[in-house]
Write a protein that binds this DNA or RNA. Structure first.
Length: 271
DNA sequence: ACTTCGACCTGTTGGC
DNA sequence: TGCCAACAGGTCGAAG
């Protein structure tokens, strides 16, 4: 479900309900997620106030003065604000119950997501300390990406989906950004010119900003924390359109697998 | 150091 | 209608 725009949409939805709220209880119904939910979570977080909610890449960070809750939504995860006594369903794995009668509920059918706890320095957490820049920050610029790509033979699509290079670009938006920039997803990253990176970087920024502005992309089941879908699906030019016609040149869009991920592009517009 | 690929899970979809 | 393989928004870590 979630790439950066969906995680950002989630963050914006849940923040007003949990900032400056005290945690009353942690309920873990299923601790076997991508990594086990740590046992000391309740001991450390109950009674504490969550004072900020931030996003780093696709990680959501809920900070208290005793440590930080780290949440990743994986492939199928979501977070909602519910009344704390709402009956939990099959894949509702963790509740952070707040003192106002609400709970932050983590749901994840495939359990590729995680709920972790970092009691000390969040920036040195192994999942976070090697991440590349945020794509919407100025630090993510074409000369950075150009330099980082020199000598790399990996396909450009896999390159921009590598979180050590830049965070938050998942399969949907990688396909879309490469279409906008007119770059073939299979091209080796190291053989792409500075001029093309000058197109690619703004394309990535644009696609992410536009998706955030309309609440992300709903393919099957993504909803924001109030249960509403995102509307970016209407703006997808290539993702999910293999075999259909290119919106620019009417050529039939080609669908291939690249690094085990479905990849759609126009052989005429993307070189 | 880099690239590729299996692994982790459940649910849905499409072909026969 | 039923069955089964393939695939789905991620990403770590092992192997080459």
């Amino acid at each position: 479900m979630p790439e950066l725009p969906e995680v950002e949409t989630t963050k914006r939805g849940i923040s007003p309900h949990i900032i400056n709220r005290r945690v009353e209880e942690i309920i873990v119904r299923q601790k076997k997620l991508r990594w086990e939910v740590p046992n000391n979570l309740s001991r450390d977080l109950v009674g504490k106030i969550i004072f900020t909610v931030t996003r780093r890449g696709k990680y959501l960070l809920l900070a208290s003065d005793k440590g930080t809750l780290i949440i990743h939504l994986g492939m199928s995860g979501s977070l909602r604000i519910v009344n704390k006594d709402l009956i939990a369903e099959k894949h509702d794995h963790v509740d952070v119950v707040l003192e106002n009668g609400k709970a932050l509920r983590f749901t994840d059918p495939r359990r590729f997501g995680c709920v972790l706890w970092e009691a000390s320095d969040i920036d040195s957490h192994p999942l976070l300390n090697n991440l590349g820049p945020e794509p919407l920050n100025d630090e993510f610029a074409s000369d950075y990406l150009f330099k980082a790509s020199r000598g790399r033979s990996i396909a450009i699509k896999a390159f921009i989906m590598n979180s050590k290079i830049v965070v938050g670009v998942g399969n949907i938006y990688a396909n879309e950004a490469l279409f906008l920039a007119g770059i073939n997803p299979k091209r080796p990253a190291g053989k792409i010119s500075k001029t093309q990176y000058d197109k690619l970087v703004p394309s990535i920024k644009r696609i992410l900003k536009e998706a955030i502005a309309v609440g992300g992309t709903t393919l099957r089941d993504f909803t924001n924390s109030s249960g509403e879908p995102g509307y970016f699906k209407q703006s997808l030019n290539v993702y999910g359109r293999g075999g259909e016609n290119c919106i620019r040149c009417s050529n039939e869009l080609k669908e291939i697998r690249l690094g085990q991920r479905s990849t759609v592009y126009c052989t005429r517009c993307q070189n």
